[in-house]
Design a binder for these strands. Sequence first.
DNA 1: GTGAAAGCGCTAACAA
DNA 2: TTGTTAGCGCTTTCAC
Lengths: 347, 347
Amino acid sequence: MNFDAITIRDIARELHLSVSTVSKALRDSYEISDKTKKLVLEYAQKNNYRPNPMAQSLKKGHSKSIGIVVSSIDNQFFSQVINGMESEAYSQGYNVIITQSHESWDLEVQNVNHLTHRAIDGLLISLSTETNDVEHLKKLQSQGLPIVFFDRVSNEIDTHKVIVDNLKGAYEATMHLINSGYKHIAHITSSAITSVSSERLSGYKKALEDSGMEVDDRYIKFCTHGGQAMSEIQQALQELLDLEVKPDAILTAWDRITTSTLSLLHKFNIKIPQEIALLGFTNTLLADVLNPSLTAVQQPAFEIGRKATEMLLSIINSKRPVTEFETVVLPTELFIRNSTARQIAVK
Amino acid sequence: MNFDAITIRDIARELHLSVSTVSKALRDSYEISDKTKKLVLEYAQKNNYRPNPMAQSLKKGHSKSIGIVVSSIDNQFFSQVINGMESEAYSQGYNVIITQSHESWDLEVQNVNHLTHRAIDGLLISLSTETNDVEHLKKLQSQGLPIVFFDRVSNEIDTHKVIVDNLKGAYEATMHLINSGYKHIAHITSSAITSVSSERLSGYKKALEDSGMEVDDRYIKFCTHGGQAMSEIQQALQELLDLEVKPDAILTAWDRITTSTLSLLHKFNIKIPQEIALLGFTNTLLADVLNPSLTAVQQPAFEIGRKATEMLLSIINSKRPVTEFETVVLPTELFIRNSTARQIAVK
DNA sequence: GTGAAAGCGCTAACAA
DNA sequence: TTGTTAGCGCTTTCAC
């Protein structure tokens, strides 16, 4: 299969002009006479000429597009983030290329390599759960690729970052559970490697400690694959249910873990919140219509994406190397719904 | 900001070799001695050489990547479709570039133009709700860009297509409602322009007719923006509720309309299914844990994506122009849950 | 086994 | 106002 698209050269030949004249006419250069411009433009139009973006990029040294790596787009948090990114990027004349790591380090590396270097002018990335080793990103950065982290960041790399106040978000969430009277609050999170998990874990612990409650490791479960597999979460949950004192509330730290836990509690026929209350980090638009409606810690996803992109573009457009980096911390918001409603004793 | 990445030329200069030798060594050509290969490879490795994909694409005439246009990735149906596409594409050494039209014709055209021509080797597209005019696609196709439609197709363009049996899906869904005893079944769908909507509408009508029930246009509501705006759906719903005989069941034809309708019914404090039953097309993974659990027509999204990609790649890899096109029709599946459960009269 | 050179489609400095 | 030319980084024939 090959293209029979016309090139600038074809136009030049046909019109008995030089390629440069055509090129300039097409770009409406002041050097070219109106008559020639008109001629060229009309011919181009008629023959449906389109510049070859690759040749343009190669020539100009940039592609006017930025790469995005997220773990999974079927996570409303990330799709909202991406909407924010698109919005900012488009407004500045950039396009975005979206790829998914599916929480796998291998795929992350593969995607980054594809997007790599010059094919994109900059990279927006949220690390996969598995990612521990960020050498692939360090190298790219040292080669001059502007990178901005959002959500799951690495502290081994110095660059702009956009995160939320995970500690506070988890703290407030846990406090809400404590204040509602729950006594045995479990925490299901992903791998402790990620910045996000460890901060949320700290918030959870701090709330317990500040309330004079004991932090019991048996109530903390890690899903190292980020809960991509239901089985992983099922096992974590089963272990919690097998404890001599079952938890009466669960704080889930990740979008997918939250929704999966909800599904599993249904499957196990456990009443929420009567038997176990559930409070989760999630950006699903359906929180209100879940059964029960879900108390949730929500992140300003669109703004995260918008801000990260704005920062990335500022690096890209900077005349000189940027060496001063900034970390923007946005607030989370707690929406209280029925899944944590303390039951009034029914007589 | 500019890159100081090394090129094949730098390696050649440093190693006192020619560019062509380096190029060949890098590609492990049989012409090059092991010694030289080793030398080049090591140097490249050490200095973290990466080929410039744009130059490669320009030279080779293809980019090994395919473009995807969907209306919105925060729709589980599309994210599942995309997963299927990625899966097939990766297995054949292709990458995917995802863009969103947000149900807007303008954005669709803009995205297609960006992905356009040579920057991608082929296009997978589901039309936006607004899209009526497909000239932009016709032109591209006539220039040789392989295009495969999925989900929302255009019958003005002759190419491979992957769809589901929308008529049957809607027919069975409506039949389920009828058989459950519902008498006044409303239908909320998007713009009738799209193939999908009109087929589903036909299925709905056919079921009513086959059951000897009257098709009443007042019970059919169109959301021309695909339900992107909640207000649109709210108005449709309000009009249904204002009818002298309120519907006792609603069939929603689109993912977003389904979930929004559910939210609105909650907001209006309408009991589902007691007052109004709800049955919708949706691929959300949360159908089981919604309140109430949602009877849904689900599409084989992953397979749609996989199949469409397989077909696209077959065109791309075809030696000669493909002129025989095929439309694959996959089945939908009806999952019966509580949102349509006929109430046993409680004494 | 290695290298010179042409060219993918486009842009832009410089000539005419 | 128009044309010539030299690349952008890479691949690939064809010489040596």
